[in-house]
Design a protein around this nucleic acid. Structure first.
Lengths: 169, 169
DNA sequence: GAAGATGGGACAGCCATATTGACGTATCTT
DNA sequence: AAGATACGTCAATATGGCTGTCCCATCTTC
């Protein structure tokens, strides 16, 4: 309480008491930032009777058409059963379709239907509005720092997965 | 697919197709970064039979001792009933205690017990390890950018709340 | 001092999303 | 032919949200 209210950049190595504040600030901003960003799409999802779990699947299928289910399972890090329910819902609504893999016929490759593409794009618009305005307010240099810190939060064993997602950008 | 795999900083205003990639990159890094950070404390919570909802309450009570319940409700943005369950669990385990407010006797002010302080500190250690190493890898300039972008994601009406949290740093 | 607003607690029931464990089938690999 | 892998499915369970309703204590306002 009696500590000076400096929340500014610490140019050199921080003493421990400042380091804690920097960490708490990151924890809080991540919490609020993440929850507010996801909230931006809830309304659009609710119109179709879907939840955030459906959006996560929709998002990554949009990102990598012909994604095998096993890959999506690794990305989302949930169980087959949980994903199964989500994919059933998306299939029932005509947003996602599967086809048998041609190199491995055991695989089912996921992709969006035209309706799915349109719906995902609509949801993405909301995300873009939020993130693009945050990017613009912060400036491009800040965006680079934003990415760098977040990359540092991803454990080494998961990094390949994220890189693969962004490989074809 | 045929687009060059540049994920580097775009120095000036981005053409639209790059803007989308920048946004998708942010969405993905936020998703993976946030989920991996929260995963860092699951084990410690499970030892007490608690979940993430309990940690969120614990965290903000640690952050602002003598927090009234109404304020915590605004921070977490959940219903009174949902929070009530969480606080009951924390109280039963002797981690959180309440006392009647002295300016407004209707209020119950929340604070951690000594055991609660110790437990929260233990969980915070896991968060610190993750975030501090990400900070160190990215560098202080990146940390500033990280904060700036996340601040831009918080709607104006919620900003005062976050600032209040960080006021006494 | 009475009326209304506010802070908090509690009951009942519901929903979304995740979990574990077990088992079955088709297909690929060796 | 044997084993591993990809996917589907059944049953049961846990967590963490939600709505609606009602209650009590206390503060504020007229």
């Amino acid at each position: 309480m009696a500590v000076p209210s400096s929340v500014s950049v610490t140019p050199t190595a921080s003493p421990l008491f400042l380091r804690e504040n920097e960490v708490r600030r990151g924890v809080e901003l991540l919490f609020f930032g993440y929850t507010r960003l996801t909230r931006a799409i809830d309304e659009g999802l609710a119109e179709h009777g879907l939840g955030r779990a459906h959006h996560r699947a929709l998002y990554f299928i949009a990102r990598q058409p012909d994604l095998p289910i096993s890959t999506l399972l690794k990305i989302l890090a949930i169980t087959k059963q949980s994903l199964g329910r989500v994919l059933t819902d998306l299939g029932d609504r005509g947003l996602v379709e599967t086809r048998t893999g041609n190199v491995d016929r055991r695989q089912k490759l996921l992709r969006l239907t035209p309706e799915g593409v349109q719906f995902e794009a609509q949801l993405f618009d909301a995300l873009r509005n939020s993130l693009a305005s945050a990017y613009a307010a912060a400036g491009q240099e800040s965006v680079t720092g934003f990415w760098r810190v977040l990359e540092g939060l991803i454990p080494a064993e998961d990094k390949a997965m994220v890189v693969a997602l962004q490989r074809d950008i």
